[in-house]
Amino acid sequence: MIPYSVLDLSPIPEGGTAGDALANSVALARHAEGEGFNRYWLAEHHNMPGIASAATAVVIGQIAAHTSTIRVGSGGIMLPNHAPLMVAEQFGTLATLFPGRIDLGLGRAPGTDMNTARALRRAMDNSDNFPQDVTELLGYLEPADPRARVLAIPGVGTKVPVWILGSSTFGAQLAALLGLPYAFASHFAPASLGEALATYRQNFRPSPWRDTPYFMLAVNVFGGADDAEGRYLMSSMQQAFSNLRTGQPGPLPKPVDDVDAVIDRRMRAAVNEALSVSAVGGPESVRTALGALVNRYEPDEVIITGQIHDPAARQRSFSIAADAMRTLGQARAAA
């Protein structure tokens, strides 16, 4: 069976608060654990009125403390915002508190605007140092080198699994070169998905971290009782993406019956393209769409996201996704 996981941005719903968003994430994580999800990842974004997971390592600790078996990690930590040593210490601490359950996904983008990047006290060109920073970070998580003058404590020897995240071939090349697992952001930037996946698999070099390539596909799922409800639930994410593209980010909007009435035609086309790697509709439609994506890209794992305004509807959508993945796994096993 292909493992299936959760990517959560801890969305702040329109009419709600950051406290509501974080409480909803804890509840969703507990629900996901019961549905057999493999991982629960949170994403780092800053100065975003609709996202409550800015202090990502802190939220990971909270999620891990309220669950028992599901792996918890970052999807991801935006490394240009941080010193590698501090990330190693944070995740080394998490791995010490929750042994065998912590993942560290790393991204190259700052995850914010230029003014906020300056407020984070990091140089604006730090993304150019990403490969060197990843290598430095890996070193802090390996067993202690007797010659090392700086150690991550906690962190040294924990060998927290490190992933490279990406939306282009750059991350694919780096993950292949370093022999690390790779997750592609196809849930919002699918244009280079096929090329990046081929680059990663063709150029992968075995490493102390992995012997073989391991690819995770990100998919939006908006599952409802029927196709109409699935489309209705998706309208919140469509509005949010349109608002972001037009420089007006805000809380996650309430869903609408007619999304074309609130997003103009040209923007709707851009939003649809960005969110094209999605499974939307009733249970059968979600299962069919996920099956087509799995057959096309043959991922080693699928990570599912879906920004849905109502927390109960979001939990039901993830249940529909889990049922679809279990059914697909059973069908593949029987084939």
Rank of each mutant, 00 (worst) to 15 (best):
A183Y: 03
P181K: 01
G171R: 05
H187A: 12
I153E: 12
V156A: 14
L197D: 13
A196Q: 02
V156D: 06
G139H: 04
S167K: 07
I153K: 09
V156P: 09
S127Y: 06
G155A: 10
T199P: 15
E142T: 00
E195V: 12
Q202A: 14
A148W: 04
F188L: 06
N203H: 07
Q132E: 14
L174K: 11
G166D: 10
V134K: 00
D133V: 01
E195W: 06
S192M: 11
M124R: 10
P154L: 06
M124K: 05
G179Q: 00
A176Q: 08
G179W: 04
I164F: 03
L141C: 05
T158R: 08
Y140I: 01
I164N: 02
G157S: 06
F170K: 14
P146D: 14
N129Q: 15
A198W: 02
D133S: 12
P190M: 02
T169S: 12
A152R: 09
Y200H: 05
A144F: 09
D125P: 03
L197C: 05
R121P: 13
A152L: 04
D128M: 10
G157R: 01
G155P: 09
F184T: 07
F130R: 10
R149L: 14
L151A: 07
T169H: 05
V162Y: 02
Y200L: 05
P181F: 03
L177W: 10
V150S: 08
L151M: 13
G179Y: 04
F130K: 14
L151C: 04
Q173I: 10
Q173L: 08
R201D: 03
E195N: 10
A175Y: 03
A175V: 02
P181L: 03
R205G: 04
